[in-house]
Design a binder for these strands. Structure first.
Length: 411
DNA sequence: CTCCAGACCAGAGGGCTATC
DNA sequence: GATAGCCCTCTGGTCTGGAG
């Protein structure tokens, strides 16, 4: 505290002093505004290490720069952040005290030099303009770098620098062939493992009868990569929520019945389309809303399905099955066709017949009226990440669908 | 006189951004 | 990308005025 100038009796800074000082300081370099109508010019930042020659040069010790309560009471050794606080504290010890006087004319700019003699900012001509700056500088250049990035192991001495770095570290994009973007290389590699496996499964399915659910939300002529693009959206959900949302919207577009506004596709046969090209006569519900409603209805689904069906129903087919069995004839009608569109090779058969009992078991319990409807809906929409098993299950379900045309084992 | 809530004030910490 | 300047908010010690 020996070289501190804070208690030197100079003008006390009033509220907003830093702003005022900054303004005064800038006015040394800029002519005062001539008109009041001019928009305020953006104050040009002072060049680093280019201090005001009139400013008082303050040399703080390294200890002081790293200290928090640097104003210590010599009686009780209590530390204070401000000299004024210390002075007022001294009153309690019946010691002489002196509060700073508020005489604005004594306000004098301070500049701070780095105590490290080898540092360029040790020279008063290269002193830094504010206390925060010199503290950050000293900590960055001469302090211990105790903040380490867990992604790239880069170390920082200033926590804010570390936080700023952490925000951007690993933001480089890795793009999969399916179009999914990843910020982390490890995530990308993991995804590619799924993606490749899925493409292989998809290829087998396509080689069979055609489109499998989840693999071919689009029409069956799509490439394997494009065919499972929608699923890849799910796989990326943990790291790219916005992309997911965007992708989901696209998926919704593809899910949306053509008469709702989606481009024409082979999803719906004219036979099945209850409202072909007739414009949006149905209530305008998003696919999300439709599917959520489907899930809600699934919670109260009828008990007409057999126990076997319930055991074998898949997470993806759960909501869809429920849809087709709804007594509600408004939305479910649309939903029924939407869901049936997934099974375009089976147009003309009910969704129950198409998917009922064909899917492999999953870890998701499918008890009627269970509380998983929301989660199921989210999974169905790809709002939650699908596990590897989910991918394989869906892929296997595609095969199952294909096989079912030859083996309709539902009674 | 004591207690308490609000005000005052400046440092600390962090974020943003211009500059190198 | 690193560094440093600027600005903002939060925090903590103390003062102040009103109520009991």
């Amino acid at each position: 505290m020996s070289n501190l100038t804070c208690a030197s009796g100079e003008a006390s800074a009033s509220s907003g002093n830093r702003t005022e000082i900054g303004t005064d300081y800038s006015q040394q370099y800029f002519a005062p505004p001539t008109t009041q109508t001019q928009p305020p010019l953006k104050k040009k930042r002072n060049l680093p290490g280019n201090p005001d020659p009139e400013a008082e040069v303050v040399a703080l010790s390294p200890k002081t720069l790293l200290a928090t309560n640097r104003f210590i009471c010599e009686i009780c050794n209590k530390g204070f952040q401000r000299d004024q606080n210390l002075q007022l504290h001294r009153r309690g010890h019946n010691l002489p005290w002196k509060l700073k006087q508020r005489t604005s004319k004594e306000i004098r700019k301070k500049v701070y030099v780095c105590p490290e003699v080898t540092c360029v900012h040790h020279d008063p001509s290269r002193a830094l303009g504010d206390l925060t700056g010199i503290k950050k500088h000293f900590c960055r250049k001469h302090g211990e770098k105790k903040w380490k990035c867990d992604k790239c192991s880069k170390k920082y001495a200033v926590q804010s620098d570390w936080k700023a770095h952490s925000k951007t570290c690993g933001t480089r994009e890795y793009r999969c062939d399916c179009g999914t973007l990843f910020s982390r290389r490890d995530s990308f590699i993991t995804h590619r493992a799924f993606c490749d496996a899925l493409a292989e499964e998809s290829g087998r399915s396509v080689a069979g009868t055609g489109t499998g659910i989840g693999l071919g939300i689009g029409n069956s002529s799509e490439t394997p990569e494009a065919a499972h693009a929608g699923m890849m959206i799910s796989s990326a959900s943990a790291t790219h929520d916005e992309d997911i949302f965007h992708g989901l919207k696209e998926e919704q577009q593809s899910l949306m019945a053509p008469w709702v506004g989606a481009p024409s596709s082979s999803f719906f046969s004219p036979h099945e389309n209850p409202n072909p090209r007739g414009g949006p006569t149905l209530p305008h519900m998003s696919a999300t809303a439709l599917l959520q409603k489907a899930a809600e209805m699934g919670a109260t689904m009828s008990l007409t399905r057999t126990h076997q069906q319930q055991q074998q129903a898949h997470v993806c087919t759960n909501a869809a099955l429920d849809l087709s069995s709804r007594e509600d004839q408004m939305t479910p009608t649309l939903l029924h066709h939407v869901i049936n569109s997934f099974s375009s090779p089976f147009q003309g058969t009910s969704f129950d017949h198409t998917f009922g009992g064909c899917a492999p078991k999953t870890t998701t319990a499918h008890a009627a009226g269970n509380n998983n409807s929301e989660a199921l809906t989210r999974d169905f929409l790809g709002l939650t990440s699908l596990s590897h098993n989910d991918f394989l299950n869906i892929a296997a379900m595609g095969n199952c669908i294909n096989n079912q045309t030859q083996n309709p084992w539902q009674g």
